[in-house]
Design a protein around this nucleic acid. Structure first.
Lengths: 336, 336
DNA sequence: TTGAAAGCGTTACCAA
DNA sequence: TTGGTAACGCTTTCAA
């Protein structure tokens, strides 16, 4: 028997305005016309009591939370966050909030988070890459519509798409070759990530297409982190390989590579050219500014949003899968 | 009249196990002992029906959502995201999910988001800096406990703290002075941000303390973005100011400044020294690696989490406000 | 146009 | 230890 509840309820509004709760609800939702005097009374009372509907109750009743769950891999990642910004913008406009959890590239953890999300009754889920199997995702999609980024997927209530990393990697390689480079080192990403594999394939195939021998000694493993790029170049240099250009499978590794070169006073692009992949915002400000492949991450986000909305029975703008593109800056130079 | 509901309810579990819903609930929550045979039946039925409690219903009933709202300024910002990672880690451990919204440094938008969060009945809110007034926050805190970062605040259910930017800025300046610099340029942050003002004050006061004249021409406005740093240095150079070092109020601007110098073949640190503020992850990999003030952002996040938990009636680890520290790398050199 | 009442899936009080 | 049942705050038939 509380003397006063902390938040006003629809019932209280109804009492104060001298109408039934049903009428208040209808008034609030515009579900039906409310006659002049009641409407005025309601407006006044609602204003006065500062009434705000309890979304929990609404959700329970209507079976929809107007909340989506986003499974990212790391909240810290500039890569994912740009995408999330795109998602946020279209979702906010549609009245959805975002529950965000991270999976840290660990399939078990990812599945666990998705279950948590479903338990919280989100209306939709977006999965940004990760290591779950398509099967797992398809199974989850029986409970909730899912859009996955970073994998091709087609299901009743699940869709997945990725950008053409292979083609873009080829394009980057073409630039290098066209600028006269023949001995091109490649710093690879983690082999368990599809994007990383596609980029490596682009590297290999372009070399083959130009009848340039693929030298295994020129391909070194990285981890998509700056430190990996640094180590990779150290290793390359230690092995006495001769090369005039480096293709780093992502920008972060390009940063690391660039520092390794700097440490030895090897100039970029005078002595060695570097090309990256992602086009992180900072890449415009490295010295020299990095030539790289631009991932239209924000647009990926809006695309995801616009793909998810219809699956939740909402209308949306058409979803265009954006394209990768080469952005030429100053880290690659033509050689004789 | 659905033939089959999409999710199993506690009632269905009760029916299937031949007990009352109350018993199921008690079993699930360990609220009371359940006798042997019923317990077995329940375990079996729950497993078989794959029953998962509806958190919405639980929340409605219990008045707690086990969800916190985080108001960040930009989901894209590496600065905020590192903090969010810290928050996420302690919250996840305590069983809380995070609803994330961004305010984009706009007081109205921020207030709007916080209202949205409250409308969704989050159990707590964290506000990462921003432009709302303390009054606004204090008012919101009547509805929900709030921890704010980037401002001092003390209320019944609101607490705010910030790091000692002033002291850290002084420390950075001391380094420069100690290394023989007298003509030090300062690239300021937005004057409406407390942190930016504190850093500027540290710059000024340190100069004064050493009886080095403060030359207004050496202080130029920035916006905490790379582009602002670039512009600032352009402006400094155009105005023919003589200086041997630059103190950028944050790392991003230091990056921009560094590029502006690079464009003119001015070497760092040989010709000009640069010091930043924040210690973004990338600052370890710039060329040269940036000397800067480290913001212990992840620790700020865990601190926030541990401060919020008690306000929501949960126990937590003790909350230590972490300290800023100077990290000396290679962008500052001693001059004659 | 309006109201009464059932129900969304839980929890917790009161009896038994 | 258990069950019955009244909430939690809302929406939505069904009648009037």
């Amino acid at each position: 028997m509380k003397t006063e509840s902390t938040t006003t309820t629809l019932q209280q509004v109804a009492d104060a305005a001298g109408v039934s709760p049903a009428t208040v609800s209808r008034f609030l939702n515009g579900t039906a016309k409310v006659s002049g005097e009641k409407r005025e009374a309601l407006e006044r009372v609602i204003e006065q009591l500062q009434y705000k509907p309890n979304r929990l109750a609404q959700s329970l009743k209507m079976g929809t939370t107007r909340t989506i769950g986003v499974l990212t891999q790391s909240i810290e990642s500039g890569y994912f966050n740009k995408t999330m910004t795109g998602i946020e913008d279209v979702m906010k406009a549609a009245g959805y909030a975002m529950l965000i959890m991270s999976g840290h590239w660990h399939a078990d953890e990812e599945a666990d988070r998705v279950e948590l999300l479903i338990g919280r009754r989100v209306d939709g889920v977006v999965i940004l890459t990760g290591n779950m199997t398509d099967g797992q995702i398809l199974k989850f999609s029986k409970q909730v519509p899912i859009i996955a980024f970073g994998r091709k997927l087609e299901g009743e209530r699940a869709r997945g798409f990725c950008l053409d990393n292979y083609a873009a990697a080829c394009e980057a390689m073409e630039l290098l070759v066209e600028q006269g480079h023949r001995r091109i080192a490649f710093i690879a990403g983690p082999a368990d990530q599809e994007d990383a594999r596609a980029r490596l394939a682009g590297y290999r195939d372009t070399l083959n297409r130009h009848r340039i021998p693929v030298d295994a000694g020129l391909i070194v493993d990285g981890d998509f982190q700056e430190s990996g790029g640094l180590l990779a170049v150290d290793q390359l240099l230690a092995s006495q390989q001769r090369f005039t250009a480096i293709f780093a499978a992502n920008d972060l590794m390009a940063y690391g590579a660039r520092l390794a070169l700097y440490r030895r006073s090897i100039r970029v692009p005078d002595d060695i050219s570097i090309i990256g992949f992602d086009d992180l915002h900072s890449s415009m400000y490295t010295t020299p500014p990095l030539t790289t492949v631009r991932q239209p991450l924000y647009e990926v986000g809006t695309c995801i949003g616009n793909m998810l909305l219809p699956l939740m029975g909402q209308k949306s703008a058409p979803a265009h899968i954006p394209a990768l593109s080469l952005v030429v800056r100053e880290s690659v130079r033509r050689i004789a």
